[in-house]
Design a protein around this nucleic acid. Structure first.
Lengths: 341, 341
DNA sequence: CTGTGAAACTGTAACGATACAGGTCTTTTG
DNA sequence: CAAAAGACCTGTATCGTTACAGTTTCACAG
């Protein structure tokens, strides 16, 4: 063949490709490709010309082509557990992530998984099929096999929640220790002494944090911790309510409660009121809260906000930075409880 | 070349491809490809052999390869408005969709858009770049430009909500007319006569439905409709509360309210109680509700559930069926208010 | 006037899959 | 027994992009 690529074929009238631009500019496909990525061996004038035409005809690189050739998917995979979905945490999270991704070439693929035991499956899927350039996971455990796996494969990811394996990886976390500590302080300030914690499921890392903050608060502010571990934040609201009612009828009834989630607090409020207690009078409740419902319907509940949308933004920024090679140690952020008054 | 494809190259030790299977079975790549799609010109024995090897080595087709060659993306795009996200509707929706997609080869890509005016942008993006095989949209308008565009291009989609353009397309919708009608009935049964509706924004199709049901109820059950259109379900809760307080102080104060959403109802409850009224005594409130919180904290509010997760499932099934060529007329479903007692 | 080197551009092959147009055999048909 | 008709398998080209290894041109040194 003596003819160049550029004149090889008038491109069809479909979606423009590099070939289209090559034809229009009279350049080779390779040149166009390199011009668009600002390669050093293309003249400034050519680059300008190519960019102009590309913009003019609305060229957008074919993702499948890029992906096939380079392996780059331009996809971030958000791996969610249905528990989160049900707690309504995922919605603002998705917004937050999207806010960041919208300014980039990345798409967001959402992959939920069912039971707790399957948490590894979606991660393995991404690793094996190269379905994404980066992954966001949440509900981390102290020894999290997903983290171990992705670290071992040197695959970019960020976690919502910390781990305790001595591995340095990107994360964003809410300071649950601080939350519980401040919650205890607020209760003691209101004269409460006999406290319980509606805590996260024990296998998750933030259980340790929240527990630690709670117990430190108990010590520092001189209160008593009562047991309440038959249920946790993953338990159904109905069961939380039942367990709370049983507790409130028993000898170890608390006068102050810390709830690790807003929906848990709703169940607790129901139980408290069913037992004839009056919030803010006989008993106080401090709760983490992500929507505003509690504040409206039970302003007596003391709430501290966790900004999940912010978490989404931070996590998205972190994975992308990780993909771009930034060291994990620089991609660890913490957010703090926001008082709602 | 006298050598066949099969013996061309021992495949590398990476992820298996058709070439890997071809090498292992001694067949040609084409044969393997056709065997896996159960083509008629491959012998039963060969197919079995190929399938066995494929399963054994965990072959999964490279999505980029398929997509580049065939244009099939195996992606469903969920296009969300941030309003929905904020109302928390998207979370169960995503679960529902995922439940269905998990049984297929489809991935779910979530694309939110910002303001109302940009609703068309993500749809255009998908159409122009072929980013997905099908689209799910919500918040439909009577004359919805997104629907018109996708119909014109004959692109598979399903809508959450109906349209009124004389175009037959797949949809799933909640029967908001029935909801409002039954809500009025319940209020009148409780002796309420002067009613208002916290309604959807007027440009959405379900405004028409809810309004129609409300007004029919007013006529059929002999009540009076009072105006309350300064705010709607998209208004911030703070503003809804303010508007409700103003209304309750005025001469046109209602004794019964229908709320088109659970979060709207929270603002209304706050306003009612601020005005010194007692729910179920001075005034009654019937609300649609998707989470269970209202029921717990204000059991006096009469609620009817809308199952968003079901909607997600129906919509996913509908797009996929549409992609597979099923006629749109057979892909229209309605769900009905679920009494919560 | 040849040789060298830099600047600017380009062709080829390949990523993995599939559409299409052949190939080989073997079996059937007249 | 030649020809036609299956049955079954396979090579080539291609989707859009990029890595890589050139090629062309021109200025300038020797």
């Amino acid at each position: 063949m003596s003819e160049g690529q550029a004149t090889a074929l008038p491109p069809p009238n479909e979606r423009p490709t590099l070939k289209t631009i090559a034809f229009m500019t009279g350049l080779g496909i390779t040149t166009v490709s390199r011009a668009l990525k600002d390669a050093p061996d293309i003249s400034a004038e050519t680059k300008e010309r190519v960019r102009l035409v590309a913009r003019q005809i609305g060229y957008q690189p074919n993702r499948a082509g890029v992906r096939l050739r380079t392996g780059k998917t331009n996809v971030i995979s958000l791996i969610l557990s249905l528990e989160e979905e049900i707690m309504g945490l995922s919605s603002p999270m998705v917004i937050g992530i999207s806010e960041i991704l919208a300014t980039t070439q990345y798409h967001l693929v959402v992959t939920p998984y069912r039971a707790q035991g399957n948490a590894l499956d979606p991660v393995r899927y991404v690793l094996e099929t190269g379905a994404a350039d980066g992954v966001i996971i949440s509900r981390t455990e102290p020894k999290d096999p997903r983290v171990a796996l992705m670290m071992e494969r040197n695959f970019p990811f960020a976690t919502h929640g910390r781990t305790e394996m001595g591995l340095t990886h990107p994360y964003h976390d809410f300071d649950n220790e601080r939350f519980a500590y401040e919650a205890v302080r607020k209760l003691v300030e209101r004269g409460r002494k006999r406290l319980v914690l509606l805590q996260p499921p024990p296998y998750l890392t933030f259980y340790l944090h929240m527990r630690a903050g709670f117990e430190k608060g108990i010590r520092d502010f001189g209160a008593t911790a009562l047991p309440f571990s038959q249920v946790n934040l993953d338990t159904s609201l109905v069961d939380i309510r039942k367990a709370a009612e049983t507790m409130l009828d028993g000898p170890d009834a608390p006068d102050g409660i810390v709830s690790g989630s807003g929906s848990g607090a709703v169940a607790l409020v129901a139980a408290l009121e069913a037992s004839g207690r009056k919030l803010g009078h006989d008993v106080d409740l401090v709760s983490k809260e992500s929507h505003m419902l509690l504040q409206w319907l039970r302003p007596e509940v003391v709430t501290m906000r966790e900004d999940i949308r912010l978490a989404g933004r931070e996590l998205a920024k972190a994975v992308i930075a990780r993909i771009e090679g930034k060291p994990p140690a620089e991609l660890q952020t913490l957010s703090y409880p926001i008082p709602t008054e």
